[in-house]
Simulated scan of single mutants.
Amino acid sequence: MSETMFDMIEVQGQPAVRVQSPDGAQATVLLHGAQVISWVPAGGANQLYLSPEAVIAPGQAVRGGVPVVFPQFAQRGPDTSLPRHGLLRTRAWTVESSRQEKDHAQLTLVFDDTAETRALWPHSFTAEMTVSVSNTRLDLELYVQNPGQTPWSFTAALHTYLAVSDVTQARLLGLEGRPFEDTVLDERHIEDHPEKRFYGEFDRIYSGVKDLLLRDGPRRVNITQSGWPDAVVWNPGPHKCAALADMPEADWQHMLCVEAAAVFEPITLGAEEEWSGRQSLVLLTE
Results as ranks from 00 to 15, higher is better:
106 Q>E: 15
120 L>N: 09
120 L>M: 14
238 P>H: 11
201 E>N: 07
169 Q>Y: 08
61 A>K: 13
2 S>M: 04
163 A>H: 12
59 G>D: 14
214 L>T: 02
162 L>F: 10
16 A>W: 07
117 T>G: 08
133 V>W: 01
125 F>C: 02
237 G>S: 07
79 D>P: 06
261 A>V: 03
228 W>T: 01
253 Q>D: 02
196 K>C: 07
278 R>Y: 04
135 N>E: 14
72 Q>A: 12
60 Q>E: 15
6 F>E: 02
38 S>C: 10
210 K>M: 08
221 V>R: 02
229 P>W: 07
221 V>S: 03
8 M>I: 02
85 H>V: 11
98 S>A: 15
116 E>R: 08
269 L>E: 03
7 D>W: 01
197 R>E: 15
276 S>Y: 10
13 G>F: 08
265 E>M: 01
81 S>A: 15
114 T>Q: 11
2 S>C: 13
241 C>W: 10
93 W>F: 12
82 L>G: 06
32 H>P: 00
67 P>T: 14
159 H>E: 09
160 T>D: 06
211 D>M: 00
71 P>W: 10
276 S>C: 13
214 L>E: 00
100 Q>T: 15
233 V>D: 02
42 A>R: 04
23 D>E: 11
122 P>C: 11
194 P>I: 09
22 P>G: 05
10 E>V: 10
262 A>I: 01
4 T>E: 14
226 S>C: 09
10 E>H: 13
52 P>W: 11
227 G>S: 13
106 Q>Y: 04
11 V>H: 05
126 T>N: 11
52 P>Y: 10
190 I>R: 12
186 D>T: 11
197 R>G: 11
97 S>D: 15
286 E>W: 13
163 A>Y: 13
160 T>V: 11
145 Q>T: 02
58 P>A: 14
37 I>S: 02
45 A>T: 14
33 G>Q: 01
88 L>P: 02
83 P>I: 12
282 V>R: 09
137 R>H: 06
179 P>F: 10
70 F>C: 09
260 A>R: 03
98 S>N: 05
56 I>Q: 06
142 L>R: 00
55 V>W: 07
